[in-house]
């Protein structure tokens, strides 16, 4: 295969896997920020928690990888409900500064807590046999894990899209994102809706965190390291939009991968340039509401 094509395929493949990780983790943030206008900088901490729970489950309790992912996601989703009710709810009407400060505080506490319990050394997870090694497609061999990530990501995109666009609950969420007060005025319990959405979003973040271990390794600083990325995906895609988050994840995932492949030292630069350009032209992101 010609050199350029090989590189292009590699970039696309790795970029797609990266994009799926970004999407899975950031989509919950996008919907909850769009729904409640709440800046949640602790979202990365939920993802990190998911990662560490998967580590514990697989290494200390011998649970298999896939089951650990599911259990960790559900667990984090449930725990997040307490956080939302107790700490976030009083600040829905407060300014974004207060929200930023509160959630940064939570993120710091999470980093400290996980450092205490797990130590600062990067963690890894034992992968099942069928996720190790490569899958050979003739012209190239691709790492199975990333292929799995892509397939899982696409599956979740489909499921979420269906839930969002075709179910009654999805319609109610969209209505509440459009006009919260009017949604309440037609009998929709927006508070409950939000709690449910938040729990699902946090659970997805935890899933993303668990999936990320194999890609990036897991340290307690995961919470803030990747937070900026999630925020960028959300801001560029537009708050409260599934489609927007997906497009932004794809764009940023592939561009970042391409940047790192082609210009090793300056690779990280490009996604920020794109972010600034997109936001200057469309301040609400691709599909955000103004």
């Amino acid at each position: 295969m010609p050199q350029v094509a090989t590189i292009a395929v590699s970039i696309l493949f790795d970029g797609l896997a990266y994009a799926m990780f970004l999407f899975i983790t950031a989509v919950g943030l996008s919907v909850t920020m769009g729904l409640m206008n709440f800046v949640n900088l602790a979202h990365g901490a939920f993802a990190m928690a998911g990662g560490y729970f998967v580590v514990s489950l697989t290494q200390s309790y011998g649970v298999d990888f896939i089951s650990s992912l599911i259990i960790a996601s559900v667990l984090v989703g449930l725990i997040s409900i307490r956080f939302e009710r107790r700490l976030y709810r009083p600040l829905y009407k407060a300014g974004e500064l207060d929200q930023v400060l509160l959630t940064i505080g939570l993120a710091f506490m999470a980093i400290a807590a996980f450092t205490f319990f797990y130590g600062p050394i990067p963690k890894s997870v034992p992968l099942p046999q069928w996720l190790q090694g490569n899958v050979d497609l003739g012209f190239r061999a691709f790492p199975r894990y990333r292929a799995f990530l892509i397939v899982l990501g696409l599956f979740l995109v489909a499921v979420l899209w269906y839930g969002f666009e075709r179910t009654n609950i999805g319609a109610r969420i969209r209505a509440a994102v459009d006009n919260r007060r009017m949604a309440e005025s037609v009998g929709i319990n927006v508070d409950l809706l939000f709690t449910v959405t938040f729990a699902i979003g946090s659970g997805l973040a935890a899933l993303g965190g668990g999936l990320a271990i194999q890609l990036f390794g897991l340290t307690p600083y995961f919470a803030v390291l990747y937070l900026v990325l999630f925020l960028i995906v959300v801001a560029v895609g537009g708050l409260g939009s599934l489609k927007g988050t997906l497009m932004a994840a794809l764009l940023l995932g592939i561009v970042d991968t391409a940047g790192k492949y082609l210009i090793a030292e300056a690779g990280g630069f490009f996604i920020y340039v794109i972010t600034v350009i997109v936001l200057l032209l469309k301040p609400a992101g691709f599909y955000g509401r103004q």
Partner: peptide, 24 residues
Amino acid sequence: RYRGLTLLMLTLATAIMILETGNF
């Protein structure tokens, strides 16, 4: 010209761009 989350992200992105330039 912007407010809220947009401004937050833009200021953050700008700072990081300068950082990355320095790193480069």
